[in-house]
Amino acid sequence: MNRKIGKQSLIFENKPQFLSSAAIVGDVEGKGNLAEHFDLILDDDRWGEDSWEKSERKMFENAVKLAVQKAKLEISDIDCLLGGDLLNQIISANFAARSLEVPFLGLYSACSTMSESLLVGSMLIDGGYANKVACTASSHFSTAERQFRLPLEMGSQSTPTAQRTVTGTGCSILTNKDDENGMNVFITSATIGKVVDMGIADANNMGAAMAPAAMDTIVTHLDDTKTTLDDYDLVVTGDLGFHGSDLLYEICSEHGVPLSEKKHIDCGKIIFKAEQKFGCGASGCGCAATVLNSYLLKQIKAGVYRKILFMATGALLSTVSGMQGDTIPGIAHAVVIERGSRQ
């Protein structure tokens, strides 16, 4: 049977099931709203390493190890590790995979990497090409800052639309639907996002750059799967922040999808407390990855949400493209995460 539906969506027959998850975050995230849900909060974001890059890859490696350990598996049980980060040539993922010594597919779709890895991982499992996959995404405030912006100790101000990159790695272990140790939480369908660029060039306003891509994926997903917002308990976006979320509501309603705060959570809006004063909220691959693999999965497992559309959003810019005057293309991949039974 054809498992592609509509224009961009897929349904999974052998529904991949979450087996375990882990989230490691930095100290600043540990002072935020979701502190109690994270598996490990670092005391300092260097984590005893001599560079932040090394600390990020250590976080990546340990998140995978922790998720594997929580699933009562060995690293060698993982058929494929999928994941990426924000650094050039995704070095955090690549170098962590070097020490983990498992088959590895490196992925990049900026901050949408968590959804991308879940999407590709689900395809591997549904297709019978893997029994257990680890889906990961990671970002680090200090490494992202020095790559994309200014040195950390520079005394400059950020604009009100700026968001703070999350220091954190999230990892989900997926297994096939019959696994009795699974969480009874499944990935049932997915939509591969299109790159959408509405001409936003301000690298300090990523929320605005990514909102149209998120809207495009939501509208396409509902259309492809012949569902409406009523079929979902929640739509989760990655890191649109406060400003980006407002824009998303507006452009979604223009396209006939009345999305509002009642049915939407943006990971970038909930991770930090208001008094931490980080402009428009949080961003980075680690934002959606850590929130999903701690708070959200717990909520779904507990039955608070039955079915969610999880959609991390990415801004596909580079330091070179920005300087050459290019606008910022956005992307959003979506997966439907559902609580259910193995039958």
Partner: peptide, 13 residues
């Protein structure tokens, strides 16, 4: 695109 950009400029903090 132009309409969206105007909306962004209007709404942004």
């Amino acid at each position: 695109q132009r309409r969206y950009q105007n909306k962004v400029n209007e709404r942004m903090p």
